[in-house]
């Protein structure tokens, strides 16, 4: 509407003064609204990476707008109770949760996040570590009421969306000290990407990694026929398939709708977290001295 208005002063039926007035008022109004919109849009572009579980599964048979809305409300309510920070596949997490089988004390598990899947209240992530030379993975539901705390010890991304190949990699790539200290990034820095290339053990593997087009693994030492077959099976045209892209994602208009609904609450939580962080930063030097 406003954009149409701003063009209107060009029509000559207006008097000179009213023309100027109208132009000024309309321009300021449009600019502020546009700026707000731009800001919101930019925030929302960030949000879809930070909170991917707020976006529903785009499969049409799974969509149910009322359920999604209720789930979102529940997720925000849970987030006000427990602080679930921003993390990505490849980040190192420490998850503290109470255990029905050992009621005396909550259990803390440190490891690298190798997978994030599902959305809504079913959202889950897998944490992997090597303890006593034994690879161990635990899957947690993100909105599980038994989780006390999720700490991010090192916030970073890897080159791939899933790190399931760590199961077939040499053990040093998934070994993390359970007494690790959290590394604090300076505020405002983008999330660093760790370009580490992982060396896999010789075959047999759990999956055919040479067919997965992975960027985070070293050159594979395989006979020629494996790569030949992988080349036969790859589908390089799929990235140009617009229909597939459309069915795979939630449209931007809908994303803006979803995130503008929860934006106020999430922003409040973020501000709160920043306050807590600042407190922690101040506390640290006193400990050292």
């Amino acid at each position: 509407m406003l954009s149409i208005f701003s063009k209107r002063p060009c029509i000559k039926c207006f008097s000179e003064t009213s023309k100027i007035l109208l132009r000024c008022s309309s321009q300021t109004a449009t600019s502020t609204i546009e700026r707000n919109k731009d800001q919101l849009k930019r925030q929302i572009v960030e949000y879809r990476h930070v909170y991917p579980e707020f976006l529903p599964d785009p499969k049409i048979e799974y969509r149910n707008l009322i359920r999604e809305k209720l789930e979102r409300a529940d997720m925000v309510a849970r987030r006000t109770q427990v602080d679930i920070p921003e993390f990505y596949v490849g980040s190192i997490l420490a998850v503290t949760s109470s255990d029905r089988h050992n009621p005396e004390k909550p259990h803390r598990f440190v490891g690298i996040c190798i997978k994030r899947e599902y959305c809504g209240l079913r959202a889950s992530f897998i944490v992997r570590n090597m303890i006593d030379h034994q690879g161990i993975e635990i899957m947690y539901n993100m909105y599980d009421p038994t989780i006390h705390k999720v700490e991010v010890l090192r916030l970073e991304k890897r080159l791939d969306d899933e790190l399931l190949y760590l199961r077939d990699a040499l053990p040093e790539y998934s070994t993390f000290d359970s007494n690790m200290d959290a590394e604090i990034l300076p505020e405002g820095t983008p999330v660093p990407i760790n370009p580490i290339k992982v060396k896999l053990k010789p075959r047999p593997w759990l999956e055919r990694w040479e067919r997965k087009n992975l960027k985070g693994i070293e050159e594979l030492d395989l006979p020629e026929r494996f790569f030949k077959r992988a080349k036969e099976l790859e589908k390089p045209w799929e990235k140009y398939d617009l229909m597939k892209e459309y069915m795979r994602t939630i449209p931007e208009e809908e994303q803006i709708e979803i995130f503008s609904e929860v934006q106020a609450e999430l922003h409040k939580l973020e501000v709160q977290r920043k306050k807590m962080k600042r407190k922690r930063v101040i506390v640290k030097p006193s400990k050292l001295a």
Partner: peptide, 27 residues
């Protein structure tokens, strides 16, 4: 969820009465 998945299938040997044959488990 919350139950660990291991990289190998582990057993502890026991006798008829359920008493373990070893004295320590190292994982």
């Amino acid at each position: 969820p919350k139950i660990p998945k291991f990289d190998s299938n582990n057993i502890v040997l026991i006798d008829e009465g359920g008493t373990p044959l070893g004295t320590r488990i190292h994982v």
